[in-house]
Design a protein around this nucleic acid. Structure first.
Lengths: 357, 357
DNA sequence: CTATTATAGCGAAACGTTTCAATAAAACAA
DNA sequence: TTGTTTTATTGAAACGTTTCGCTATAATAG
C-alpha cells in the first residue's frame, strides 16, 4: 500500500537538491553551515535556503544521528516526580537544556529499583548523550552506580554524592544550611529546641544533623536528647507528613518544654505544624518552626514557613553545565574528571519563627 | 583519530552475525521475532540470542527508526511544569507511556508562545509519534491549533477543548464539580456564600461559575453580587495566591457577612485562607472554605482543604490511551476521529468546611 | 606561459538497520 | 521419477544523511 514515490511522506534532502539545481552534498553543506560552506557563494546559499523553505524541508534526525552519532538528547531520570522538591530542579534542567538546544527524555523510577533499571536500559538504547539523575529519595545502592558507569555516558547525580567519585554530582550544603537554621533560632533567643530529624538512612539527614551539632558546639547550646525524634527509615515520601505529625505528637507527649522546633525538611515541618495546631500550640506565638528545602507550598502556608532554601533551579542548571561540558569533552576525545559541585543553601525568614518575648 | 575498526564504539548486528555464524538478515529476523522467524529452528535462534547477549548487542535506534519510521517517542508539552496541578498529570502520562514502552520527551513552554513554537518545531524534527499538550494555563490561541495540525501528528490536549474539535481532548467536568462544591456548602447550612472567581479569560473559570449558578437556580439559593469578586486576567500563576489574598481582603472590606467562601481553585483558596487568617477569621470556625483541583499541598494545609479533586493521574492516562490508539490507527492507515473525554471531579471533604452551628 | 592555490560543486561510500526477492535444501505429492 | 510446497538462509537494496576525495574552473604567483 505504502509505495515509495507516490505518497512520499516527507521531503528529503534530495528533493531540495533537485529543486534548487544543486547536489545533495551541497545542500547538506549549506544547510548545516559546514566548514566547506566557506567556499559557497551567497547566491547559491540563498537559492538552496529558499528551496528548502518552500518545500518545507525538515531534516530527518535519525539519518543525521546515524552518521554523526549525536542526537542532542539527554536523559533525565527522576526518582519520584511527585515530590515537590523535584519540580524546580526539573525546571532548571529543562531551561538549561533548552538554551543548549538539547531535549530532555524524562524517566521516573517511582522509587523502584527495577523500574530504574528498565528505564536506564531504554535510555541507553536511545543513545542519550548525557544522563542526569535526580536522586531525591532514598536508597541509591552502590551497584546502581555500576549500572550507570556501564553506560559510559556523561552522568551527573543531583542530591547525592556517590562513594566512588567517578560520577559527577551536584549537592547542596546541608550541613551549613542546618547550621544557619539553628543559628537563626538561637538568634531569636530560643534555647529549648526540639528536633525532628530525618531518616537515618538519608545522607542529607545525617549532614543536617552534623550542622546542628556543630552550631551547638560552637555556641555551647545544649541539645537535649529528650527533645530529639527521628523519622523512620521508610520509602514512601507521601506519608512522610503523617509520620512527622505522629513523631511530633510523640514529642509533645514527653511533656518537655520547647520553644522552637527544627524539622528535617519542609514536609516534616508541615506535619509538625499540624500536630502543634492540634495540641493548641500557636505558631509562631508559642513555638517557632523552621524547615528545610523551601518547596513550593512553604510560602503558601499559614503561617508561611521559615526555611532553608535549596537553590533547586540552580542545581538543575549546574547539572546541565557539567553534563554539557562532559559531552563536548567526549566529542573532542579529551578525558574530563568528574566534577563535584556543592551549592549553598540560604535562610528564608517568613512567619513561622519569632523572637522569644 | 577515530578510525572505523580499531576502537569501534558499539557492537552492530553484523558483529552478532559474524559471531553466531549466520547472516545479518537472520539475526535481525530472530532478534525482532519477525514473521519469518517462524521458519527458523529453535537451535539457530538460541545461538543467535546467546551471541547477542555475550557481545552486549544493543540495536541502534536511529538505524532502526530510519527504516521503520517509528521511534516510540511521544512529546509532552507543558505550559508550566512549576504549576502543582501539572505534576500528577505528568505522572499519569509517564506511567501510561511506560506501560506502552514509549518514552516522553518533555517540553515546557514557560507560558510563552514563542517558546511553545520553538519546542513544537524541535519535537516535530524529532519525529515524535504523538503529542500531548498540557494546557494548564491561559491563552491557548486559536492559531496554536493551526501550528499543531500542521504537524499531522496524533495530538491530545489536556485541560482545554478547542473550538474546532479536530484535536482530541481530555478535560474535567468543571461545571459538575463546582455544582457539587456549592451543594456541599449548602448542605452544611451555608446561605451567605462568597465567591472568588477565576480569571474571566479561562474557560474553566466560566464553566465552574456556570455550575454554581445552576445549583443556585436549582435550589433557589441567592447569589449576592456583592459577595463575588474576580481574579484578574493575568498570566503569572505564581502571584495567583497574592491576587487571591488581595481580592479576599477587598471582599472583607465590603463588610458584608458571609459564612462560606468558594474559591476558583486551591491556589485561590490558599490566598483566601491567608486573608481570612489576617482578619482574625477562623477557618472553619467562622468561615468555611472550599477549593478546586486538590493539588498536593491542599491535604497538607492546616486546616486541610476541602476541595473538588480533579482525577489528574487518570487524565494523563486517558490522554495516553487516546494518543496510543491514534498512533496505531495511523500505522494501519485507518482514519480515526478525534476523541473528547470529560472526566468527573470528586468532592473531597477535609477540615476547612463545617456545618453552621 | 605555466604552476600553484583558492573557489565551487559533485559522486559515492558509509552509518546500522529491515525487508524483499532469491536460492537451496528438504519434505511431500503425483 | 518429477514437480510442488515447506523450511532455512541469505545478498542486496533502501531509509536520509554527512563527508571524503575528486574534478574543474578561476584567480594568483612565478
Amino acid at each position: 500500500m505504502r509505495q515509495r514515490n507516490p505518497n512520499k511522506a516527507s521531503v528529503t534532502i534530495r528533493d531540495v537538491a533537485k529543486s534548487s539545481g544543486f547536489s545533495a552534498s551541497t545542500v547538506s553543506i549549506v544547510l548545516n553551515n559546514a566548514p566547506l560552506a566557506r567556499y559557497i557563494p551567497p547566491q547559491t546559499k540563498a537559492r538552496i535556503q529558499r528551496a528548502a523553505k518552500t518545500l518545507g524541508y525538515r531534516p530527518n534526525v535519525f539519518a543525521k544521528s546515524l552518521r554523526s552519532k549525536r542526537n542532542h538528547t539527554v536523559g533525565v531520570m527522576v526518582f519520584d516526580i511527585t515530590d515537590p522538591y523535584c519540580t524546580p530542579i526539573i525546571r532548571g534542567i529543562e531551561n538549561a537544556l533548552y538554551q543548549a538546544s538539547y531535549l530532555p527524555i524524562l524517566a521516573d523510577a517511582h522509587n523502584e529499583r527495577g523500574r530504574f533499571e528498565r528505564y536506564l536500559e531504554m535510555l541507553l538504547e536511545r543513545r542519550i548523550e548525557g544522563l542526569i539523575v535526580l536522586a531525591n529519595w532514598l536508597f541509591l545502592d552502590i551497584n546502581l552506580l555500576a549500572d550507570i558507569e556501564r553506560g559510559k555516558i556523561p552522568t551527573v547525580i543531583i542530591g547525592r554524592e556517590l562513594e566512588s567519585d567517578a560520577t559527577s554530582s551536584v549537592i547542596v550544603d546541608d550541613e551549613a544550611g542546618a547550621y544557619s537554621a539553628l543559628s537563626h533560632l538561637y538568634g531569636l533567643g530560643h534555647r529549648k529546641i526540639a528536633f525532628v530529624r530525618g531518616p537515618k538512612a538519608l545522607s542529607s539527614s545525617r549532614a543536617r544533623w552534623r550542622g546542628a551539632q556543630r552550631f551547638a558546639k560552637d555556641t555551647g547550646l545544649e541539645l537535649d536528647p529528650r527533645l530529639i525524634v527521628d523519622l523512620p527509615d521508610q520509602r514512601n515520601p507521601n506519608v512522610g507528613v503523617d509520620d512527622a505529625c505522629r513523631m511530633t505528637e510523640e514529642l509533645l507527649k514527653r511533656d518537655r518544654q520547647f520553644t522552637a522546633l527544627m524539622a528535617y525538611d519542609d514536609m516534616t515541618a508541615f506535619g509538625a505544624l499540624r500536630a502543634l495546631a492540634r495540641a493548641g500550640i500557636k505558631v509562631p506565638g508559642n513555638c517557632s518552626v523552621v524547615g528545610f528545602d523551601d518547596i513550593n507550598p512553604s510560602q503558601l502556608f499559614v503561617p508561611a514557613l521559615t526555611t532553608i532554601r535549596q537553590p533547586m533551579e540552580a542545581m538543575g542548571t549546574a547539572a546541565v553545565t557539567i553534563v554539557n561540558d562532559a559531552i563536548t569533552a567526549a566529542a573532542e576525545n579529551r578525558a574530563l574528571p568528574a566534577v563535584h559541585r556543592r551549592l549553598a543553601a540560604e535562610l528564608v525568614i517568613r512567619d513561622s519563627t519569632r523572637a522569644i518575648p
